[in-house]
Amino acid sequence: MRRNKAAIFGLAIMAIFLGLAIFAPVIAPYSPDEISSAGASPPSWQHLFGTDDLGRDVLSRSLYGARISLSVGAVAVVIALLLGTLAGAVAGYYGGWVDGSIMRAVDVMFAFPSIFLILAIQAMLTPNIYNVMFVIGLTSWMGVARLVRGEFLRIRQLQYVEAARAIGCGDLRIIFRHMLPNAQGPIIVAATLGMAGAILTESALSFLGMGVQPPMSSWGNMLMDSQAYMRDAPWMSIIPGLLIMVTVLSLYFIGEGVRETLSPKERHAGS
């Protein structure tokens, strides 16, 4: 049961971060873009997390960055889930050539090194926050599709689905009312991992200068900007680095907790 403690801890952290992100304009002591000729200064009472190379308050930027990073993660994962679940459900439910062609499309997408696809699409769309969300979502739905399809292939053999079909339920009803709820465990797990992945992907994109663009701050681009200052102003990189790590860890723990709670096999294993 220790895992569930970790999951609750993760949930608590995410709730706090979410709250901080939502109330950033109220909490932030400074404007996140306000520069000062003083340049980078270490943490002090005026600036709890110090200031960055342009003299901007790192705390305020982190708070506003939370809004950006969390929403990039959330929106990207929602896009990926919608696409993935839809594709996977249809493929798994109908099987046959429908399954075949959808899975081949998944293969096509998988066959692209995702970073190339992201870069090419980013180049086409010019990088801004919406496109970052869209592109990450668009290139990460395939895992979900495979997973949901797998679940569906399994579930559709189960008696209650056969029963539902026997009493004449429509396809859509069977998919959405009977099958999808039974596949939600893995989907939730995939969602938490996906969100964690999206936050990391945004930071990797920032490394290439293709992530969320300045002056908007995301944890990813803060971390990227800080890498040149790792020795002179370590607080610039430690803060966003920790924020990303803690967030991603929390999401993993939540996912792990959900996995263990929902998986019936694990449940009787634990007892």
């Binding site: 990391l200 930071s203 990797a204 490394f207 790792m230 990189s237 680095g241 790590m245 803690v246």
Partner: peptide, 25 residues
């Protein structure tokens, strides 16, 4: 189990370029 769970999650949670630069330093 718990230790490695934590280590492996932590490894996954660090942005690669940051980890790389830290190791290099």
């Amino acid at each position: 189990d718990n230790l490695f769970t934590f280590i492996s999650f932590a490894g996954m949670a660090i942005p690669t370029f940051w980890l790389g630069l830290m190791l290099m330093l």
